[in-house]
Structures are given as structure tokens and as C-alpha cells.
Amino acid sequence: MGGAQEPSEPAGPSPLVIGEVQAALGKRLDDVAKILAGALVAVAGIMTTLGLNSKFVFVALNNRSWPIYVASLCAIIAIVCSIGALLIRPTGRGVLWETGVLVLGVIFYMASLSIAVVGAAQAAGGNGRPTITDVRLNGPRSGMRLHFGVHADGVQKWSHIEVSVNPKDSGDLYWSVLRPDEQGRVEQQIDIPLSPPAGTSVVEIEAVNPDESEPGACEAKAQHGPACTELHIP
């Protein structure tokens, strides 16, 4: 007598179970993709937290600060990766592709945050270039006084700003070295008597960071060139 044969157990998980696992995994990956979609907003928030407001952004862009551009590019790539991952179907191979795309997006997202920190620090720190402000010449020629201000941000603590006043094509009438404070800032008001040699009609004021200065005259298109002012004596 032949007994009834019991149905054999399936060799592996049923397609229904596999589909449920893939759907659950795809749902989790989709959540990660949605988080990465806000990468640009998150990077902007990090920059704002570090004090990189619109003023510093304009300074960084004006100085062609590469971290700002690279951080923005990495954030955009992270967003593209997240959107691409959301469009992949949660099949067996699709889950693998979605995982790979999201891993790439996370890498670009973390790189964007790290580079944004560098960019915020650079922009907030200034560029070390001096500027000459508030130039005034008071009194008659026999007793003139010269007043001007020197300002610079982001000067390295071991560096300095050199300031000189001299008749054009002649030796110095005044020369000084200005050191930065603890925040890398130089802010100095200079008020000196001016007694130029007879026949002098033009006096030059120059401020330069010798550690950052690039060769060339005052008019040269150099990012770290000297700041110069010509003062015509009546």
C-alpha cells in the first residue's frame, strides 16, 4: 500500500518573502535618500552655524575661495544621487544599485560638510590684505600732519603689515611694522607730522603684507598685492 506523500518543503524562501524583504529594504533606503535630498540645506545650515553669513559668502566668492565651490558641488552631487536612488525599482538587483548610489551620495554629503567647515573658517578669517582708509592732510605746509588708517583681517599671528610714507621716487619719511591681535586683525590709526623735502609734490602711502604679497606694482592684478595711496601736496 502506498501511503500519501507529504509535499516537499521548498528549497528556499518563497518569492513572496523575498519580495517583502526587498520592499522593506527599499523603504529604508528611500528614507536615507530623502534625508540626503536635503544635503544642500544641511550644508547651508552648517555654514550659518559657523558664522558664514551672506557677507562672508560674498567675500569668499570674491576671493575665489575653492572650498565654497567644492562644498556646493559635492552637495549637489549628493542630492542627484539621492534622487537617482529614489527612482530605482526595489528589485533584487535594484536594491544593490540603490545601495551603491546611496553610499556614493553619503560620501559626497560628508565631503560637502567637511569642506564647508574649511570654507567657513577661511571666509570668516579674512585674507590678510591691508587697506588704507581715512586719509587726511591737515595744516599748512610748514606744519602739516598726515592722518590715515590701516586695516587688515586674517593676518597670520607670526606675520605683520609694513606701512611706509615717502615722497615719490625718494626715501621713507615714515616706516612701521604693525602686528595683528589675537583674532588676526590689524586696526591702526596713524597720525604723524609730515615734513617732506622742498619741491615735493606727491607723497605715497603703502601698506603691504610681506608674507602674502605677490610681486608687482600697486596697479598689478594680484590677489595679495600692496595697498597704495598717492597724496598730492598743495
Rank of each mutant, 00 (worst) to 15 (best):
D172H: 14
D153E: 14
T91K: 03
L36F: 08
A39G: 01
Q5F: 06
E187F: 09
S213A: 12
L52P: 04
L16M: 07
S201Y: 05
A4N: 10
V155I: 12
A44D: 14
G38W: 00
I205W: 02
M1K: 07
A220W: 10
G119Q: 04
L25E: 15
F108K: 02
R64P: 01
K55T: 12
D30C: 06
A60I: 02
E6M: 11
S14C: 06
I18E: 14
P90K: 00
L96S: 09
V101P: 00
E9W: 09
L231Y: 08
R141C: 09
V101H: 04
G45H: 10
M110R: 14
L173Q: 02
G139D: 06
G2Y: 09
K157D: 09
A227N: 07
S65N: 15
V80H: 11
G84L: 09
P10V: 09
I190H: 00
H224G: 04
G184R: 03
I35K: 15
G143S: 13
R185L: 13
R93G: 11
T99S: 13
P13H: 05
P234T: 07
C74A: 12
P13Y: 05
N166W: 00
P226I: 06
G171T: 11
A71Q: 04
T91M: 07
V41F: 05
L102Y: 04
A60Y: 01
D169T: 05
N209S: 10
T200G: 02
P196H: 06
P226Y: 03
M47F: 00
A71T: 00
G216P: 06
E20N: 09
D134A: 14
L194M: 05
H151W: 06
I18P: 00
V150H: 06
I83P: 00
I68E: 05
G125A: 12
A33K: 06
T133G: 08
V43R: 12
E214C: 07
P140H: 08
V117N: 02
P67I: 03
V118K: 10
A222G: 14
V150P: 01
E187C: 04
P215K: 15
I132K: 02
T48P: 05
Q22M: 10
G51R: 06
V95E: 09
W66G: 04
W66T: 13
R129Q: 12
T229M: 07
A37K: 12
L137Q: 01
V70T: 14
S201C: 05
A124V: 08
F56M: 11
Y109W: 10
G92I: 10
Q188P: 06
G139Y: 00
A4S: 10
A33E: 07
S201V: 12
A42V: 14
G51E: 08
Q183D: 13
A11S: 11
A33H: 07
P234A: 12
F56R: 04
T91N: 05
P7A: 12
A111Q: 11
A123W: 01
I77F: 12
V150M: 02
Y109S: 08
V165H: 00
G125P: 03
P234E: 13
T200A: 05
H147G: 03
H160F: 14
G26F: 06
W66Y: 12
I192T: 03
I68P: 02
R64L: 12
I77S: 10
G139S: 01
G143Y: 02
V135M: 04
H232G: 02
G92V: 09
I83A: 14
R129E: 11
S170K: 13
A44K: 13
Q188T: 10
